[in-house]
Structures are given as structure tokens and as C-alpha cells.
Amino acid sequence: MAINDALALVIDFFEGKKVFSTSFGIEDQLLTHYIAPFANRVEVFTLDTGRQFNETYEVFQRTQNKYPLINIKTFFPDETDIAAYVNTNGVNGFYNSVESRKECCRVRKVVPLQKAIAGASLWITGLRAEQSQNREEMEFLEWDEANQLVKYNPLLHYSLKEVEQLTNVFNIPVSSLYKKGYLSIGCAPCTRALLEGEDFRAGRWWWENGKKECGLHIHSDKNY
């Protein structure tokens, strides 16, 4: 089933507040294109951690220009939480330990996310199975126990090549970082370009070993 048809069915089926989160990566950009016709029924939001690439803001603006009917609401971390983290760990304390990095992600991303999805019955994401081991085990529609809502992953079994082809067909704005090897774009201090042959998530928190997640998309029943 085509993405637009599947989206229509899912959006019609679920009552209440429906949200779509975008970080302006290529997958999210493709979904923004398909969600545009449902702009009055799906709340679109992004999380601004305060440590974004300037290129992320540039594609944010280009996206708003192309899809003026979509109001992309921005959620920010609490200033008090940021001050407490920096005073305790240092401005770049996330390099010091996995625990410190995860706390930074919690303050800058997880806590704002809770505000963004509060009261929602459905959360639409741009996750794809080939992005990580954790995401290989996700379903198109799944219950998110931690957030008490249903998560919908319409691009789950799309390949990166298919996503790229569709963004080209529809002339969808893509971050200039993407063509420089940044296939997964997060905060500037925590993201680098991929080297040839590296795993999709290798550019995120590259100084760490193990699974690469920030806490937004975690199965509560798995040790990821």
C-alpha cells in the first residue's frame, strides 16, 4: 500500500491527538511531504536541543517555505535543566561518560519530547528497520509502553535508496549535510560524517561502543 493511502487509513482509525516528530533527516523530510495533506489533523513538531547544526535550521526554513500549511512546533529543553547539567558536568560533559551523555540526551531531548507527545494517541515517526538493531525489531504499528501511545513507523521497511529516490521525485528539501556523509544527523558535537562502509549510526556518539540510541525510541522491554 502506498504511503499516502496507509497514512490516511491510520489517521482515520485513531481518535484524539496525532503527532509527527521531525529532526529534518531525509526520512522525516519524506514523511513531511506525505503528511502535508493532513496538516490540519496531525501536529508536527521538532526538538531543538540548543546544539543543532546551522544546516538543520536551514533545511527547517526551506521545509516551512515548501509546505506553508504545516506548522512545525518547536520544543526546547528547560533552561534550568540545562544550567544544572552544565554546572555539574561541564558544557561538553557528554564526552566524559556514557552516563553523562545519556543525561544530556534526557535533558535536551527526552524531557521536551514528553511535552510534545503529551495527550497523544498516535506518534508517527520516520524510523527504518535498517538503521539499527533496535529498529529491526520494531513494527509498523506498535504499543509504546514508556509513552503510553501507539507508534506508527510507515517507512519501516523502506530502503535508504527508495527514500532517496522519492525525495528526488518530489524535490523535497534535504539537509546539505546529508550529501557530505551525515546520514543520521543529531546535535553538532555528537555527530560526524560516516566513513565508507560504516554502519548507519556510526556517526552518532562515535566515541562510544555499543548500541546508539538517545532514549527517544527505546523498547521498554529490551535492554537497548
Rank of each mutant, 00 (worst) to 15 (best):
G16E: 08
E99L: 15
D199W: 12
G203V: 06
H219E: 07
N54C: 06
W205P: 07
Y224F: 11
V169H: 05
V91D: 12
E58G: 04
L156P: 04
F45C: 03
K180Q: 15
Q133V: 11
N92F: 13
K18F: 02
V150F: 15
Q131L: 02
T191A: 07
L113P: 04
K102D: 15
E137S: 12
D48R: 10
R192Q: 09
F13M: 09
E198G: 07
P37V: 00
K73I: 12
E137T: 13
I26S: 01
L122R: 05
F38N: 01
G90H: 03
I82N: 08
H157Q: 12
T167G: 05
N54K: 14
Q52A: 09
N65V: 12
G119R: 08
R101C: 07
F20S: 02
Q61G: 04
E139I: 02
E139Q: 15
S132D: 12
E55Q: 14
L194I: 10
L122C: 08
T74F: 06
S121P: 06
W143N: 07
D81C: 06
Y57H: 14
F200I: 10
Q165P: 02
S159N: 08
L7C: 01
V19H: 02
N4R: 06
D48V: 05
G210F: 11
H217P: 03
K109E: 09
G50N: 09
D48H: 13
E130N: 13
E130T: 10
T46Y: 00
E145H: 12
S121C: 10
S121R: 14
C214W: 08
C187D: 15
H33A: 01
V174T: 10
E142D: 11
D144F: 01
F20A: 03
V174I: 15
N4C: 00
A120R: 06
F13R: 15
G186D: 08
W143Y: 14
F20K: 01
C105M: 11
I82W: 09
G93A: 08
Y182E: 07
G186I: 07
G197D: 12
Y224E: 14
W205S: 04
N96Q: 15
R108F: 06
Y152I: 03
V59Y: 02
K151V: 02
T191M: 09
A202Q: 13
I70Y: 06
K212N: 04
A84N: 14
V10D: 00
F94R: 04
F170T: 00
V163W: 00
G16Q: 09
N171I: 05
I218L: 15
P77T: 03
N65F: 08
K180A: 09
V169Q: 13
E208F: 11
T46L: 00
N4E: 09
R106C: 10
A8G: 05
E103L: 14
F13D: 10
T56D: 02
D199M: 09
N209W: 01
S175M: 03
R135F: 04
L149C: 06
Q61F: 07
R201H: 06
H217V: 04
S97V: 04
